[in-house]
Design a protein around this nucleic acid. Structure first.
Lengths: 210, 210
DNA sequence: TTTAGTGTGTTGTTGTTGCAACAAATTTAC
DNA sequence: GTAAATTTGTTGCAACAACAACACACTAAA
C-alpha cells in the first residue's frame, strides 16, 4: 500500500490507521462494470489498487472516447477531472479500488496527525502533476497545423532525454485521437516529415533528426 | 488580504503572521514588464494583488497565444503551470504581486499552525479549479473545426446560466488566440453562425439561439 | 484455421482554414 | 481633441485537413 503515490512517505501502519479514520471504502468491480456513479463521483477520491479501468466520454452522437487509461496507482475523482454526466469510469478488467471522502483531503481532523499532513501534501503533488500533464496536452493542441502538433508532441517526448529518439506510448490511431486530428491526415503528414528527413520511424520507435 | 482565495478562512492577523513566517515578498511591476523571470518561476508561487497580467506563449513563428488572463486573486507559478522559456507573464497594467516560496506550500513547519493547514487546503482548492479550467480549455481545443470550437466555448460560457447569453471576456482578437485559430477565419465563421441564425451578437454580448 | 476485429498505410475529393492585405471603426495616448 | 495604435470586418487565394473509401497486416477469438 505504501507504494501508492498518495501514500508516499507514510508507513503501512499509519496508512491502516488513516484509512480507518477516513472510513475509506474498498470495493471490487467486475469487468465492464461502471465504477463511478453520480453519487460517488461528487464526494469521493478514488485510487485503483488492482486491474485496469477506462475513463470514457460519450459525445452527443454517442461516440465513445477513452480520455484516460487507469491502472494501479491511478487516481480519479472530481478534484482531478470534473466528471459530468457524459464522463464515466468503467472497469476494463476486474478491478479493486479504494475510495476516500473528499472531506479528509481538504480538512485536517483535530488530531493533527503527521501522516495526514503528508497525505495532503501527496495529493497536492498528484494534482500538480495532473496540471502539468494537462498543460503539456494544451501546448500540443494549441498548434494550428498537424505538422506542428506532431513536432510539438515529439518535442515533449524527448525533452530532457539525451537521445532524440523515443518509443511512442500510443498506437498511431490513439495518437491521432490525442492530437485531435484526423488519422489519415496525420499519417500523410508523418509521411511528409519522413520524406523531408525530419524524422525516421521504425514501428513505434521515432527518431528526430533536427 | 483575507478576500484572496489562497487566504480564505484565515484572519488578517494570521495572514500577516504567516507572510512573515514565509518570508513572502511583495513586488510591483510597471505595465508591459515581465513578471516571471526564470529565477522566480522555479521556486515561487505568486498571486496578483492589483492590476492585470497575461500569461502568454510565443511559438517559434511568433504567434502569440494567451494562456491566461490574470487579475487580483489569480495565482501563478510552476505548480499551476510549467513555465518554460517560451511562456512568460507580463503586466498588462501596472500591478502588484505577492510571492511565496514553494516549500511553505508543500511542507508544514513544526509549529503546526491552524492557518497553515487551511492555507494548504486553499491551495488544494485552487489547484483543483485549475484542473477544471484546463479540462474545459482542452475540451474546446479538441474540437476539429473553428465552428465547433466556438460553439463548444460558448456552451461553456452559458453553462449553468439561465439566460443563453453572455458577455465575451475577451476581445475577438484575443478569442482567436484562445481558440488557437486564425482571427479572420474565426471572424468568417462567426459571420456564418450569425447568418445561419445560431447566434446573435451585439458587440461583445453574444446570445445563443439554440 | 478461419473469422472478426483492430491498426496501418494510402489516395482523391471537397470543404475549411490560414495567410495576406486592406478599409473602417474604435480605443488609447499625448 | 487630435494623432497613433489597435481592433474589427472583409475578401481572394492557396494550402491544408477532414472525410470517405479501400487494401493490407496483425491479433485474438471461435
Amino acid at each position: 500500500m505504501d507504494d501508492l503515490s498518495m501514500f508516499k512517505n507514510i508507513s503501512n501502519e499509519e496508512i491502516e490507521f488513516m484509512l480507518k479514520c477516513f472510513h475509506a471504502i474498498r470495493m471490487t468491480f467486475k469487468k465492464e462494470r461502471t465504477i463511478i456513479s453520480s453519487i460517488i463521483n461528487s464526494n469521493y477520491i478514488g485510487v485503483i489498487l488492482s486491474g485496469t479501468a477506462h475513463m470514457v466520454k460519450y459525445d452527443y452522437k454517442g461516440n465513445r472516447t477513452i480520455l484516460e487509461k487507469l491502472e494501479r496507482d491511478s487516481v480519479f475523482g472530481n478534484i482531478f477531472m470534473s466528471l459530468g454526466n457524459d464522463i464515466s469510469i468503467t472497469a476494463s478488467t476486474d478491478c479493486e479500488v479504494l475510495l476516500i471522502e473528499y472531506t479528509h483531503v481538504y480538512e485536517q481532523c483535530r488530531k493533527n496527525c503527521r501522516c495526514h499532513t503528508i497525505f495532503t501534501s501527496n495529493i497536492l503533488s498528484l494534482l500538480s502533476s495532473k496540471v502539468s500533464e494537462l498543460n503539456d496536452r494544451l501546448e500540443v493542441l494549441s498548434n494550428r497545423s498537424i505538422r506542428d502538433k506532431l513536432l510539438s508532441y515529439f518535442g515533449l517526448l524527448v525533452k530532457g532525454k539525451s537521445r532524440r529518439s523515443f518509443i511512442l506510448p500510443f498506437t498511431y490511431t490513439e495518437l491521432a485521437d490525442y492530437l485531435s486530428v484526423d488519422r489519415s491526415a496525420m499519417q500523410r503528414e508523418l509521411k511528409n516529415l519522413k520524406d523531408e528527413g525530419f524524422i525516421t520511424t521504425n514501428g513505434k520507435r521515432i527518431t528526430l533528426n533536427y
